[in-house]
C-alpha cells in the first residue's frame, strides 16, 4: 500500500463536530485491517486532540499520514498557545472553562491520554499564536 494523506478541519468552540476526524480515521484504519487494539489507541489520542482544539483554540486542522509502518498525526491550531507545556502535560491540570468542564471535558486528562496512546508524541507551542502536536503510532 502506498502512503495516504488526509486533512480535516476543526472549528474552535464547535463541540457538536468534535470527533469527526477521529471517526473518519477509525473507518480508514478498519478498512486497512489494522489491529483493533492499535486502532483504539490512535482513536483515543486523536479524539483528545480534536477536543483540545475545539475547547481551547480558534481553529485548527489535522493532517494524517498513513504508510505501511505507521500513522503520523499532526494537529495544528491557531489559538492561545500553552505557556508551560510541562504543567499542561500533568494529569489533572486543565485551563478549560467552567462550561467545558460541565460537559465532562477539561479534567486534565487529554494530553496525558494522547501521550499514553502513541509511540511518539511531540508538542510545540507559541503563546498567542498556537499549538502543534505531532504523534506517531506504529501499525504493527
Amino acid at each position: 500500500m502506498g502512503a495516504m494523506e488526509f486533512r480535516y478541519e476543526v472549528e474552535g468552540g464547535n463541540f457538536s463536530k468534535a470527533g469527526h476526524a477521529s471517526s473518519a480515521v477509525k473507518k480508514i484504519l478498519k478498512q486497512l485491517n489494522v489491529d483493533a487494539r492499535i486502532i483504539k489507541r490512535v482513536v483515543v489520542a486523536l479524539y483528545e486532540g480534536e477536543v483540545n482544539v475545539v475547547a481551547h483554540a480558534h481553529k485548527g486542522h489535522i493532517l494524517v499520514n498513513i504508510n505501511e509502518d505507521e500513522i503520523g498525526i499532526s494537529i495544528i491550531d491557531q489559538g492561545p498557545g500553552i505557556p508551560d507545556i510541562d504543567l499542561a502535560m500533568q494529569e489533572g491540570f486543565s485551563t478549560a472553562s467552567a462550561a467545558v468542564r460541565e460537559m465532562g471535558f477539561g479534567a486534565g486528562m487529554g494530553l496525558p491520554n494522547m501521550k499514553k496512546n502513541t509511540d511518539n508524541f511531540e508538542i510545540e507551542s507559541q503563546v498567542g499564536v498556537g499549538t502543534t502536536v505531532r504523534m506517531t503510532t506504529r501499525l504493527s
Binding site: 468534535a18 470527533g19 471517526s23 483504539k40 483528545e48 471535558f105 479534567a107 491520554n113 496512546n117
Partner: peptide, 30 residues
C-alpha cells in the same frame, strides 16, 4: 468525565452517565 471514558472504558460495556449532550455518542461510538 468524557476523557476518563475515552481512556479507560472497554468495548462492549454499557456506559452509565448523567452527561446527555451529543459528544457522548462520539465517545461511545469511538
Amino acid at each position: 468525565l468524557l476523557s476518563d471514558v475515552m481512556g479507560n472504558a472497554d468495548e462492549g460495556q454499557a456506559w452509565i452517565t448523567l452527561q446527555n449532550h451529543k459528544n457522548i455518542m462520539a465517545v461511545a461510538s469511538l
